[in-house]
């Protein structure tokens, strides 16, 4: 009887871990395959061995010495960082009254932010294009930073508001009783306590800007101004039929590895950031 129970316990666990394993394969295999393909020489590229027998770093050598790719990597880095910083500054300020005060129009602001998150980006394309041309920033980094605000600001505003709300009110009240001004409360209480939230939302904004494609494709023209996703999408060999897949995969791995590292380090934070205030009942 007891033996039977143990047997069932083990069987159950075995099935559970088998499912886990399948899910892990499903999630990771495409990226694994990209790594494997990037390590193959062009002669070996079409081999379909799951574990490669020969490894070469030629594709990576090419990618790292390629000026265009270096440019777009740098562009993406600058644009994503700037976007995250500006978004954080703007949303930190706005989230404090939204989370703490009750005033006419508060809900309306939140509702507007929520509607903007669902806006199709192609619907602001022509208006934005005109604006960028008037300000003469076409093909510049600032154009993309500006455009990315529409993606990052509404989302960050929601998440940040929810984070501020989760800070206990007593601390703030104690400070008010001690005669602290609004500015002091903000600087000495909210900002330090919001550290983790800032890291989380900043990270999410960075990732969103790093991965964005539509605006980057439309508002850049030259190879030097492109971001990583655009160069990757437009990367092609001598002809349509012989795409240099080894190099494309090497470039894909290079632009994705930093993100995967971030995910491994910050997984808990990212998950809380993605789900805070998004859908709960």
């Amino acid at each position: 009887m007891i033996k039977n129970k143990w047997k069932r316990y083990y069987l159950k666990n075995l099935i559970f871990y088998a499912i886990c394993f399948l899910v892990a394969i499903y999630c990771l295999f495409p990226f694994y395959w990209a790594i494997i393909s990037s390590l193959r020489s062009s002669a070996d590229l079409f081999s379909t061995e799951i574990f490669p027998s020969r490894v070469t770093f030629d594709n990576y050598k090419y990618i790292f010495t390629d000026i265009t790719f270096g440019c777009s990597f740098w562009n993406s880095l600058v644009i994503a960082t700037l976007t995250a910083l500006i978004t954080l500054a703007v949303c930190l300020l706005a989230a404090c009254p939204l989370a703490r005060r009750r005033f006419a129009g508060r809900k309306r602001v939140l509702l507007i932010a929520l509607s903007v998150t669902t806006l199709p980006h192609v619907a602001v394309l022509s208006g934005m294009f005109e604006m960028i041309r008037v300000w003469d920033i076409y093909n510049e980094k600032s154009a993309l930073v500006l455009a990315y605000m529409i993606i990052t600001v509404p989302f960050t505003l929601w998440t940040m508001t929810n984070f501020v709300k989760s800070i206990p009110k007593d601390i703030e009240e104690a400070a008010i009783i001690d005669g602290a001004s609004q500015y002091i409360i903000l600087r000495k209480i909210f900002f330090p306590l919001l550290g983790p939230a800032v890291v989380t939302t900043g990270l999410l904004a960075f990732i969103a800007a790093w991965n964005e494609f539509l605006f980057a494709l439309t508002f850049t023209l030259t190879n030097q101004a492109r971001t990583v996703p655009v160069s990757l999408a437009l990367f092609s060999g001598a002809s349509q039929h012989e795409l240099p897949y080894g190099m494309i995969m090497a470039a894909s791995v290079v632009v994705t590895l930093p993100l995967i590292l971030l995910v491994v380090i910050f997984q808990q934070r990212i998950i809380s950031g993605l789900t805070t205030g998004s859908v709960k009942g």
């Binding site: 790093w210 995967i260 998950i271």
Partner: peptide
């Protein structure tokens, strides 16, 4: 569980263009 959470996040974090290219190759 922590590892599983990180693994599950991988398809989400990979830039869409990279996913598209990876799958186009596969």
């Amino acid at each position: 569980r922590g590892w599983m959470r990180a693994i599950v996040l991988v398809p989400w974090v990979i830039p869409t263009i990279v996913s598209a290219r990876m799958w186009a190759w596969m």
